[in-house]
Structure formats: structure tokens, C-alpha cells
């Protein structure tokens, strides 16, 4: 009986010493709380998300997905999947093109901001998030064409894609990531040409030609480089170039409207 107050005081003393030696930070405390809450909350969070998909609207489902992924902050595929689902939802098709475009822009901004916020905790899966971020604007424009005009002042969806691919290449400088951006060149050039910016389009094609030397499959790289050179010279004003091979290559189909 007499030992109880002493043992209690000793426990409190040890706790204070431990706190002084390793002061807890908010992030660790939050992570610890999430670690405890995860198994208790996850089944209900999933159930709520399913219910929102069955009876709620896309905004509610997105909010529920955010609540769910707060418990699973490192699940980058989940972030990408729910963000894409929300950004590409089009349940409300009412209003003018401009109004629909504005709604699509809001959804895209929210989805991309959320994906970007998940990068901090994604660890080695950050690359997946960056690639997801890179291609979301382009897919969103395909789903809602009125969105294209709203993205044009910032260079269009293609420019955003290239910026995110550049960030992926900076953080994960692997051959695969570099090649992904290299082979994205025709789309980016088409976006710049559509924005009436031929100078930057030519510069970007020149960069892609230089980068093609790093591609691992050199046979493929040589053919690719040849097509890029043909396009580049034609855009620079050389009308003697034969574009037969470019026209036959599906990868350059997006550039054909600008090569007439």
C-alpha cells in the first residue's frame, strides 16, 4: 500500500524525463493517434465512402475519400484514383460552356491540390503521384472541352503536364522517367503551337532531339529523332522536307494540323 504513491511519482518522473529527452512533435503525435485510430475507423470510413458513391454526389464522395485517406496518408494510388474520379465527374451538365468549364476547373484545382498535399507523405511512391498529377489536366480537358480555354492563359493542359513531368524527372532521375518526358514532346509542341507560340515549340523540339540521345533503345531513338528533326525543320520554314514518315507515325498525329 505504501509503495503506491512512490511508484506513481516515479512513473510521472520517468515520463517527464522521457519528454524532456525526446520532446514529442505534433507530427509524431498525429501519426501515433492515426496508428491507433486506423483499425477502428477504417471499416466505417470505407462504408461511408461506399454510401456516398451509392447515394451522394461526387463532392461528397471526394470529401469522404479525403477522410478515408487521412487514415492512409501513404496510399498514393488511392489519392490518384479518388482525385481522378472527382476531377472527371460530370453529373451536372447544366449551364453554358463557360459555366461547365468553370466547374471543371474548380474540380481540377481541388483534385490537384489534394494530390499535391499527399506528396509529403508518399515517400518512394511520390513518383506515382507526380505522374498522376502530370496527366490529370489533359484527361480533364478531354472530358470537358470547355476547360481547355480556361487553362490556356497558363500554357494549357500540356504545359502543366510537362511541368509535372519535369518535377518527376528532377526528383527521380531514372531513364524511364526521362524517356516518358522525351516521348511526350509532340503533345507539348502541339499545345504550344495551339497557343500560337511557335518559338517555344521549336525550342522544346530541339530539347527533345537532344534528350533522345539518352534513350536506352537507340534504334528506336534514332527513328524518333529523325521524325523530330523533320517536324522541327518544317516548322522552321523548310518546306522541302518530306513529311510522309511523320504523317504515317501515329505518335505525331497530334501535330499534323500544324504541319499543313
Amino acid at each position: 500500500m505504501n509503495g503506491r504513491p512512490w511508484s506513481g511519482a516515479l512513473a510521472i518522473g520517468c515520463l517527464l524525463v522521457a519528454t524532456a529527452l525526446v520532446p514529442p512533435n505534433l507530427r509524431d503525435v498525429t501519426e501515433f493517434a492515426a496508428w491507433i485510430a486506423r483499425p477502428l475507423m477504417l471499416p466505417f470510413a470505407w462504408h461511408s465512402l461506399q454510401e456516398a458513391n451509392r447515394g451522394g454526389d461526387p463532392l461528397e464522395a471526394f470529401a469522404r475519400a479525403q477522410n478515408l485517406l487521412r487514415l492512409l496518408p501513404q496510399w498514393s494510388d488511392g489519392h490518384s484514383a479518388f482525385a481522378y474520379r472527382f476531377a472527371l465527374s460530370d453529373d451536372d451538365r447544366s449551364g453554358t460552356d463557360a459555366e461547365r468549364g468553370a466547374r471543371a476547373r474548380t474540380r481540377l484545382d481541388l483534385a490537384m491540390a489534394w494530390m499535391e498535399s499527399a506528396r509529403e507523405r508518399a515517400g518512394k511512391h511520390e513518383l506515382d503521384l507526380l505522374q498522376g498529377l502530370a496527366f490529370l489536366p489533359e484527361v480533364a480537358v478531354r472530358r470537358e472541352p470547355a476547360l481547355a480555354a480556361l487553362l490556356q492563359p497558363t500554357g494549357g493542359a500540356i504545359k502543366i503536364t510537362d511541368a509535372w513531368l519535369a518535377e518527376a524527372e528532377r526528383l527521380f532521375p531514372t531513364a524511364a522517367v526521362r524517356e516518358q518526358r522525351t516521348f511526350f514532346a509532340p503533345k507539348l509542341a502541339a499545345g504550344l503551337l495551339a497557343a500560337n507560340d511557335p518559338a517555344n515549340a521549336l525550342e522544346m523540339l530541339a530539347a527533345a532531339i537532344a534528350r533522345s540521345h539518352d534513350v536506352r533503345d537507340q534504334a528506336l531513338a534514332t527513328r524518333w529523332r529523325q521524325r523530330l528533326v523533320e517536324v522541327s525543320r518544317w516548322l522552321a520554314g523548310d518546306r522541302t522536307i518530306d513529311l510522309t514518315a511523320v504523317t504515317a507515325d501515329e505518335r505525331f498525329a497530334i501535330l499534323l494540323p500544324f504541319l499543313r
Partner: peptide, 17 residues
């Protein structure tokens, strides 16, 4: 404090918990 990031929009159904 831990409301989902939805900008100026609201999803009241998600606040049911």
C-alpha cells in the same frame, strides 16, 4: 479542424459522422 479541402464548396453529407 479536420474538414476536407473542398474550397468554397460544401459537402454536408460528408459531415454526418
Amino acid at each position: 479542424t479536420i474538414a476536407p479541402a473542398l474550397g468554397e464548396q460544401h459537402a454536408p453529407g460528408a459531415a454526418s459522422p
